[in-house]
Design a binder for these strands. Structure first.
Length: 344
DNA sequence: TGCGTCC
DNA sequence: TCTTCTGCCGCAAGACGCA
DNA sequence: TGCGGCCGAAGAG
């Protein structure tokens, strides 16, 4: 669900924090993705089909563009969010199964697919969004790609939306430092603002929308002070309001030692065996996509040989590792890329 | 480019 | 009176390949 | 399921 109306607020009040990019602008970048969001996207688009094929196609598109994806899996959700998830699952009519953090069969399939594609993945101790944001802060990855805005209060400096395989689709990049500068608030104040807007971890104050919430935080700086300065009759504070727990979740996300990230060559034969013989995807579909992948890769190498500097040589790309706390480039360099508005 | 199909 | 919030409604969500 | 647009209701100045 993310943060209610945060995208609107940024669009209207901190437009400078947004830049419009093309997927090719992320060549050579390490991008963390919340796997559950990606999988749910495919499930929502084609409920009758396995989301595995979608994951397969999209991951290859990333690799073709020289993007190094890292998939992050949800661990045991924090108690506050578990309640929300359970409620959501109940209304949707399915059983909420990630209470323990034990991988479902679908998760195991995704893990297997990523292994065969040679793409690294990380098991988060809790919320995958929190882990993704922490990876950016630690310099392990350059940005988070997600449709949820949660990564920003979690502290991800760069958030990318609409990073998909569609041709001519516009990628939107949000810069947290620019956002804070434009709104003239600190990260802690921004977290309080997100709680007032409405997040997954606690209730919100009724009657306070994005306009008023922003003005109040800019004026009074903390939720405690905002509460003292709003009309309690028209804007009642929720009973047993767990805003302090929510604040703690955003600011003190659980951290783990990041494993060394390694990208290797996709194993076509094993992919065919898994996707076609176990998951019953048509072999022709998998083979032709792999063929296209190889051709794109060859073209890139040719371009590189011809002196096209932007392209990443694939031999360089594979078997490349990213060590902990050793960013390839500062995350901020992503947002310093030239804006490339799409012409329609 | 639009539309049908993927499983 | 103007601004802001809320609730309701409708639509579209992925990616590929063929015509 | 989530969003954007539209509308009526309610609050702020």
């Amino acid at each position: 669900m993310g943060i209610t109306k945060l995208a609107d607020l940024i669009r209207l009040d901190a437009h400078d924090a947004i830049s419009h990019k093309d997927i090719s602008d992320y060549t050579g970048k390490v991008i963390a993705l919340d796997t559950s969001i990606v999988v749910n996207q495919f499930r929502a688009a084609t409920p009758a089909l396995s989301p595995l094929t979608g994951l397969f196609f999209r991951t290859l598109t990333f690799l073709e563009h020289g993007i190094k994806p890292v998939f992050v899996f949800d661990g045991k959700p924090p108690g506050e969010k578990a309640a929300v998830l359970e409620k959501r699952a109940e209304t949707a009519g399915w059983r909420f199964s990630n209470r323990t953090g034990i991988a479902s069969s679908q998760t195991k399939d995704c893990l297997q697919l990523l292994r065969l594609l040679g793409v690294p993945f990380i098991q988060a101790p809790g919320d995958a969004e929190a882990m993704c944001a922490w990876l950016v802060r630690a310099g392990t990855v350059d940005a988070v790609a997600s449709e949820d805005m949660d990564s920003l209060p979690f502290g991800a400096n760069i958030l990318i939306r609409q990073l998909n395989a569609k041709k001519d689709s516009e990628v939107i990049e949000y810069s947290l430092p620019k956002l804070l500068q434009k709104l003239q608030i600190s990260h802690e104040e921004f977290v309080d603002l997100c709680i007032l807007l409405g997040c997954d971890y606690c209730d919100k104050i009724a009657g306070l929308g994005p306009r008023r919430a922003l003005t109040l935080i800019q004026k009074h700086r903390t939720i405690e002070n905002v509460v003292l300065n709003v009309n309690r009759k028209t804007h009642p504070v929720p009973l047993f309001w767990k805003y302090k727990e929510a604040r703690k979740l955003f600011l003190d996300a659980p951290q783990i030692e990041t494993p060394e990230l390694v990208w290797t060559e996709p194993d076509e034969e094993a992919l065919v065996k898994f996707l076609c013989h176990v998951k019953y995807v048509k072999e022709e579909r998998v083979r032709s996509r792999m063929e296209k992948f190889r051709k794109t890769r060859e073209e890139r190498e040719k371009e590189k040989a011809a002196g096209c500097t932007k392209q990443t040589k694939m031999e360089d790309f594979f078997r490349v590792t990213r060590k902990r706390g050793q960013p390839v480039e500062a995350a901020d360099s992503l947002s310093s890329n030239t804006k490339r508005p799409k012409s329609k």
